[in-house]
Amino acid sequence: MSSSVKKVGGFVPSVEEALAALISRNSISSVLPEYDQSNLAVIELLANWFGDLGFAVEILPVVGHPGKANLLATLGRGSGGLVLSGHTDTVPCNPERWSSDPFTLSNRDNRFYGLGTCDMKGFFALVLQAVARYEASDLQQPIMVLATADEESSMSGARALAAMGKPRGRYAVVGEPTSLRPIRMHKGIIMESIRLTGKAGHSSNPALGINSLDAMHDVLGELKNLRRELAAKYQNPLFSVSVPTMNFGCIHGGDNPNRICGSCELAFDLRPLPGMSNDELRDEIRRRVNPIAAQNEVGFEMYSHFPGIDPFETPASSDLVQVAERLTGFSSEAVAFATEAPFLQQLGMETLVLGPGSIDQAHQVDEYLAHDQIEPCIELLCNLIDRFCVTPSA
């Protein structure tokens, strides 16, 4: 593993030292308040490291989310440049199921184990090694390191940056675990609930109430029709699941077998392909459910569990995609999981998802980053910096 590097202003920690420090700082984000933690300890650690390397560092609090912040560290000047982006939070974990403490880095079996080693604190440890090789005077365009909050829950950090209009690079690499294979498209996601409200009553006489569970049966049938229609209309063979998907995740209604079900709620997700619109899908669902609710004489509400993530696609012809394909030796691919890439793309940057580690390790017990991903990743990052910051094309 790389040893500590001497730089003006101090020492750059080795990969192992950096990983150990990052993993030790609990930055779990969750929609459940009892699990949710601040990410400021990680942000401040990164700010110190990149500041010591001569980067101009901005810590950007996420408005409305106390204890949460983004970081933007910039080396060099110019209107273009390369953004290396990652999130500082992790998912919750079950420490009792781990073979070792998830907040203490464990080095065994040619792997680094710990919560976030793969998804995705490990990326920052490798970025640190790559950028330590450069001074501002080497660069014609800037290197920008972006560290965000709450990717695993609300994506509030990326949403805040998009609203602020920063960063303003020309190219962006999101270092999610892709086994160092370039990903140029992924599906979007919306998570919605439909609530139907009828009238409870004694089950011996159906006329005494309005059964919302009966109405939900009709709604489910119509949503299944929509699912079939979307699958017939939209396909993309680059995805392993080539059609948009809709999953009925949970349903709750009523309170007793001998009582007419007064209210019923269905929660579901829908993952659209690039080229589909989240807002148009929501509108279509409302259009289909409204007449069912009216026919069944039930109240109808539909609400989103979070604002959603748009589908993402960067053209295969983009400079960033073609350079990444050449450097990695892999053709660009598509994945089903969502990332912060659409928010960076909204800022006008050519964007790619490309990072160390396997997505199969993300969110798992005994999460790890394999040693054999480390040096290839550092070299790849240096090659990208050379191409887009040191000797950028006109």
Rank of each mutant, 00 (worst) to 15 (best):
S277A: 10
D279W: 11
E280N: 08
R282M: 13
R282T: 12
D283T: 07
D283G: 07
E284D: 00
R286E: 14
R287I: 00
R288W: 01
V289L: 15
N290W: 04
N290S: 10
A293N: 07
A293W: 05
A294M: 12
G299V: 11
F300S: 12
E301I: 10
E301K: 14
M302C: 13
S304F: 03
S304Q: 10
H305K: 06
H305G: 00
P307G: 02
P307E: 03
G308A: 02
G308P: 06
D310H: 14
D310R: 15
F312Y: 15
E313A: 12
T314Q: 14
T314A: 10
T314H: 08
P315Q: 12
L320M: 06
L320Q: 05
V321Y: 01
Q322E: 09
E325A: 07
R326A: 09
S331T: 10
E333P: 00
E333L: 08
A336S: 12
F337N: 02
A338N: 01
A338W: 03
E340M: 04
E340W: 01
E340V: 03
A341W: 04
L344P: 07
L344E: 05
Q346M: 14
L347W: 12
G348L: 15
M349Y: 14
P356C: 00
G357M: 00
G357R: 00
I359S: 06
A362W: 07
